[in-house]
Amino acid sequence: MKSNKWDVILNIFLFIASVCFVLCFCWMIYSIKNREKKEDPAKQYRNAFEREIKHKAYGEITDDYLLKKRSYSEPPVGCEDIYRIGEYAHVSFMLKVYEAEKNEDKIRRNGARKEALENELSVYEKYGDEIDVILEEAVSGINKD
C-alpha cells in the first residue's frame, strides 16, 4: 500500500517534470534561434512614444529619453523628434530648479537650450506648451489629480 502511494506520487512528478523538460527544451531552442534577431529599436521606441503622447504621459517620455541617453547619446534613426520632446521636458524641469537656486550661468545655458529645442519641436509644439503648464502648476502647488 505504502509503496503504491509512492509510486503514484512519483508518477505524477515524473509527468510534470517531463512536460516542463519539453517546454524548457523548446524555450532554449527558441532563445538560441532568436538570439541574432534584433527588434528594430526605432520602431519600438516610436510605438511606445505614440502611446505615451496620446495619453500625455510626459513623465514616461522624459524617462524613456533619459534611459536611452544612458546608452546612446544620439537617438535611433528616425526618432530625433522624440528625443527632442523628451529633452525639452527634462531641460524645462531642470530650469525651474536652477531658477530656484538663482544660478545665473545654468539659467542662461539651459534657457538657451530650451529655446533652441522649442524652435525645433514643430508638430509637437503644443505638447511643449502643455509641459510648461504642468511644470508651472507643479511648482506653484496646483494639483491636477
Binding site: 500625455k56 504621459a57 513623465g59 514616461e60 522624459t62 521636458a89 511644470l135 491636477k144 489629480d145
Partner: peptide, 11 residues
C-alpha cells in the same frame, strides 16, 4: 529621473 516621472505624470 524619478521626480520627473512623478511631476510630469499623466492625468
Amino acid at each position: 529621473q524619478s521626480m520627473e516621472r512623478i511631476t510630469l505624470r499623466t492625468g
